[in-house]
Design a protein around this nucleic acid. Structure first.
Lengths: 208, 208
DNA sequence: TAGATTGTTAATCGATTAACAATC
DNA sequence: TAGATTGTTAATCGATTAACAATC
């Protein structure tokens, strides 16, 4: 039965999606919680708990239909519809995201970028780069549902506030800032420095 | 007393470091678990439990010395020493990492990149790009302690194996692959697609 | 049907929060 | 000293694991 999906499960959903996709490509049609667990390094018990919590269905004695289960996951994750992203900041990170084909392939299209440097106001491959001060005019026609923050940390919070006023309710944050936001906004952080610091910690404590 | 530091605490360490750094820059000398908790969106209780678990010390009636606490955290995270990184893959992601000044500033220097495209075997700003097939010859003089995987997913696992043979014991993985590795290797993943998919999930379930 | 594996309840484990005595 | 806030123990909460009856 599909009830409350815990944060812990939500964080694992992309891994389920990824592993089931791999299985599909290998031509595997059906898999038990035992086998999937070995692959994903989770216990069979946890696999079954997880799948039940988000309403996936298996068949006693057989296991789970790979394709059916993946489609169910894609549906509840909102991956069956396309998303339109605007990237705020056309620096290294902004451009790396804009040019990474993978996201487009997974349903996330970058429709425009914004920067305050006039040098950058030009077509960048398929993606136009606009003046960030003209964002309010541009957004209605662009119809983005996600904004990507790839600008200096010092400008991040105020930009989020502006984006909120313009109707943006989902933000993918690449700045090393813990943003403050209303409860009706979804924010996911990619704190790369944090992740590198964790690696440093693990290196130092490998033998503990 | 400094005992076992849980995974959950390790994941929060970079945020402590970041917030204490901000406080230092604001000229704040001392802070209570109450105030720090408000800032970091954690309960005072958790702050005290966390700090005690990694051996930080406060003073009853006063709170924690900001600078002293941060230095303690930097020390146990291994951030007081420099790290030398090699980036495997000189594509968009590899270059974005190489050229992001922030990491260098925090003690992580990129000493070289490797790629299999001869077009890219040249000096890239301050960073040389070498032939990936010559990695074994190059690594001894470069003395890296971290390898960054920024190459196609299909090549990631084998590259990790090769790097292990060459003595690398810390890997920062940007490929969308769950790698298999020996217990004496530290691996931290930056699964950007996963993070974007989680955003998609949150957008869809904002009103649940 | 018999065997396998799910769905689900119960037990365990770990992390967070609460409470308060210790002490600066 | 009195007030404030830590350090630490106990209580609670949530997530993971184990167990097993249901059932394909």
């Amino acid at each position: 039965m599909s009830g409350y999906v815990s944060e812990a499960v939500i964080r694992r959903l992309p891994a389920y999606n990824r592993h089931l996709h791999e299985l599909e490509q290998e031509g595997v049609l059906q898999i038990s919680s035992q086998e999937l667990g070995e692959r994903m390094q989770l216990t069979p018990s946890q696999i079954r708990q997880d799948i039940n919590s988000f309403g996936g269905e298996g068949r006693q004695g057989f296991g789970y239909q790979v394709h059916e289960l993946r489609e169910h996951i894609r549906k509840i994750m909102g991956l069956t519809q396309r998303h339109r992203m605007v990237i705020i900041g056309a620096g290294r990170i902004g451009n790396a995201i804009a040019n990474y084909d993978g996201f487009d392939h997974e349903g996330f299209t970058t429709v425009a970028m914004f920067d305050n440097d006039p040098e950058k106001w030009k077509q960048n491959g398929k993606i136009p780069v606009y003046d960030v001060s003209r964002m309010a005019e541009r957004l209605p026609e662009l119809e983005p549902d996600i904004a990507v923050l790839a600008l200096p940390a010092s400008a991040a919070q105020e930009m989020l506030n502006r984006l909120y006023e313009m109707g943006i309710r989902a933000v993918w944050n690449f700045t090393p800032v813990d943003l403050q936001y209303a409860r009706d906004v979804a924010v996911v952080n990619v704190h790369m420095s944090d992740s590198l610091q964790i690696l440093s910690y693990l290196m130092k404590h490998q033998n503990d």
